[in-house]
Every structure is written in structure tokens, then in C-alpha cells.
Simulated scan of single mutants.
Amino acid sequence: MLRKLSSLILVGVAGLAMSGCSGGGGTDGAATGSSAGAGGGNDKIVMGFAQVGAESGWRTANTKSIQESAAQAGIELKFSDAQQKQENQIKAIRSYIQQKVDIIAFSPVVESGWDTVLKEAQRAKIPVILTDRAVDSPDKSLYKTFLGSDFVEEGRKAGQWLVDEYKDSKDPVNIVELQGTTGSAPANDRKAGFQEVIGADPKFKIAASQTGDFTRAKGKEVMEAFLKSTPKIDVLFAHNDDMGLGAIEAIEGAGKVPGKDIKIVTIDAVKDGMQALADGKINYIVECSPLLGPQLMDLSKKVLAGEQVEPRVVTEETTFTQEQAKQALPERKY
């Protein structure tokens, strides 16, 4: 009788241990995939992913890539949407630490203010991967790798197109700039890269520069203000397609022709942006691929297997003219 009772207690304890390792339901908006314990084993990788939000077509495609790639790789994904608020991301990361996930990945809303929560993950021996956006912490041991685009290079490519476009002109070129979210890595870096290239020629002047928060609605709103406050606008540089698309609405509303009266260069190459480029409303797009999911899952498996990974993994990207956009659109995945 005692032996039978002991066996029942052991089975009960083992069951509790297994339910704890599987992670259970997500909290703080975290969505949970299939249960790690459902197949009878605890070897399934559990990833906590804290996304910036759903502020653009690019971000929506990025989220889809991560979710689909996790499912294909057999990784259980706990997902949270921070709605572009750093405090929500920090809360989600702390929730993942409490749930004892195997690995944490996130795209930081802004560059600063992450050391405390990343040190908490480090103490819990949970590795962290940065995706799409970097942090400005001097302590590189707080994360295993950063997977994403070279935003400075994207800004340079946008600037180089402008320099080439106006190489035969001696007249001043008045530029307005729609920046991404204030304090974010892409906004800081794209601005720096763009300025680096155009700054070599004094005829290029940024007449106005303001954040449009990477959203179409804000891009339209800020462009409307630019059109009222800046008498002569030759070029719009938008840090992403969505802001550029919002700006096109404002330009057309003001009775001007986007792509002709005001030349437009943007970054991302999402389908709506590419269509506007093909239609001649945008003049040039620098690609920033959101399809980071497969690389993220591959890096996660390597990190958890104890393999060495590069501290910086750059995604391969290109640029598009109007004709190139027409050719690429039929096969565009996002």
C-alpha cells in the first residue's frame, strides 16, 4: 500500500514539473503556440518574442515571418505586441523570464534603457537575441547577437540616389525628412547615413525634419504641416514606405504631383510602397527586408546548442527603381 502511494505521489510531482517546463499560457499579451509537453517530451525550444507593435506593413510582415518560421522550426513561440511602448516590452521580457523560456528575442522600441532587464535575463541564464533594431548598451555580453539590417547603409543608399539624381544641377535642393520613431535605431541610423552622403554638397539642405512614428497617418499629418510651413520642397526623404504613402496623400491633397513636383525616396520596399514606385509616385526605394524569421530560428538553435554565432548578422538587401519595382511586384511576398 505504501509503495503504491509513493508511486502515485511521484507521478503527480513529475506531472507538475512537466507542466511548469512547458510554460503554460502566455501572459501580458503573450500568445502561446502548441504545448511543449503535449508530445510527451520537454526538449521543445520555447521562445519569448517581444514585438514593437503593428505600426506598418513592414512590421506586420515581420511578425508573420517570425510566427510562421517558429512553427516550421518546431519552436514554441510566446508572442507579445508592445504597441510601440518600451514599458510594455520590458514587462513582456520579465514575464518570459518568470516563465523560464529557453530564449528571448525582441525588436527594441528605442535604443536606450535596456540594461536592467537584460541583466535579469542574464542572471536567469536565458540568452537574448536582438532582431531588426539594436540597443546602445556598452555591455555586449547582455545579448548573443543582433540580427538585422544596416540602417546607416540604408540611409547612405537613399542619400546616394539623391546625389546622383541632382548631379548636374547647381540649384539648391530643399529636402523635408519624415523620421521614424524618436530614439529608435532605424530613425537614428538612417538619418545619420543620409546626412553623411548629402552633407558633402552644400546645395542639399534639409529644410524640415520631424518624426512620423513610422505610421501612414502620422506621415500624412506631418507632411501637411511641411507643405504649409516650407514654401519650396524639392524632395521628401521618408524613413519608411508607410510614412511616404501618407505623405503622398498630403501632397496630392495640396494639388501637387508626387514623384514629379516633389521627388520621394523611402526605405522598406513593402508591396504598397513598391506599387507607388511602379506608378511613379515614389522615385526610389531602399529595401529593408522584414523576413527575418528563418534566420532568427536558425540562430536560436545554434545559441542553445552552445555554438558560436557572429555578434552581428546583417540581412542582404537591394534597392529599387520604377522599372525594377514593376518586375519585382508580381513575386513580392510582403
Results as ranks from 00 to 15, higher is better:
184 S>C: 04
207 A>D: 12
223 M>Y: 09
191 K>R: 07
238 A>R: 14
261 D>W: 07
160 Q>S: 03
243 M>R: 02
223 M>K: 11
259 G>L: 08
178 L>Y: 08
263 K>S: 07
177 E>T: 10
228 K>C: 00
190 R>T: 06
191 K>D: 14
273 G>V: 04
265 V>T: 15
240 N>W: 08
190 R>C: 03
258 P>L: 04
228 K>L: 14
183 G>S: 09
167 K>M: 01
186 P>Y: 10
252 E>H: 12
248 I>C: 09
188 N>V: 13
169 S>W: 02
271 K>S: 15
169 S>E: 15
214 F>S: 13
181 T>V: 12
255 G>N: 09
231 P>L: 08
230 T>D: 10
223 M>F: 03
216 R>S: 12
266 T>M: 01
219 G>N: 12
261 D>I: 09
161 W>G: 09
207 A>V: 11
185 A>K: 06
198 I>N: 08
164 D>S: 14
256 K>R: 15
199 G>Y: 06
236 L>N: 12
262 I>S: 08
255 G>H: 11
255 G>V: 05
181 T>H: 06
260 K>H: 10
184 S>P: 08
266 T>Q: 09
242 D>N: 14
165 E>I: 00
228 K>I: 11
173 V>H: 01
163 V>D: 04
272 D>K: 14
261 D>P: 11
216 R>M: 12
268 D>S: 14
242 D>P: 06
239 H>P: 04
183 G>Q: 08
246 G>Y: 01
169 S>R: 14
161 W>F: 15
260 K>C: 03
